[in-house]
Amino acid sequence: MPQTMLAFLAMMVVGTHALNTQRYEMLVQQRDVRREIEEMAGSVALETMEIIRVRAWDQSVVDGTAVGDASDLNLMEMLDGQDQFTVGHDCTIFGGTDTCDDIDDFHKMDTALRPFVMGLDTLWFNVDVTVRYVDFNLNPSSVVTPNKEVTVSVEDFWQNGDSYLQSPVQMSRVFSYEY
């Protein structure tokens, strides 16, 4: 009887140890995959940031009403309320119908689906953008300043709704108006 109990105990100890090892291995694999997806999401964020960076700083620049001095700040778009710019654009560059030709047109645009091509395979990422005015200390500003902070948030997209990332990868840049 004692031998049977000891054998049973030994099996339990080994079984628990094996289970913990497997669990650890699974966590390590998930971590590695997650880091790879974070890397790709960062790449997609950078590409999106470059798309926005080459746009005009404000609609007044596109329209030609800005003349290149400090008085231009009076012409810059600024809405009352939580959002300082018009939201919900469906930009043509991301397959929509709206011409997004200046930086703030991307503020809270419709979520865009961007690919990361990996040889023969492609991973897809959801991209969201927010834009706001910031002061010279890069703090949010409730008035027009010559600095717009663009934040791109990227999250992996899977057909079944899963996500490997615990939170979206975010990249922020500040673009300034020269006058």
């Binding site: 694999q29 790879e36 790709m40 790449s43 997609v44 990996m118 040889g119």
Partner: peptide
């Protein structure tokens, strides 16, 4: 670009890693 592991193994979590920059 993509890179493969320097050590050839029979079981690997990642058999390639991908990198991209703009």
């Amino acid at each position: 670009f993509a890179m493969v592991p320097p050590i050839e193994t029979s079981r690997a979590t990642l058999n390639k890693i991908f990198y991209g920059s703009t």
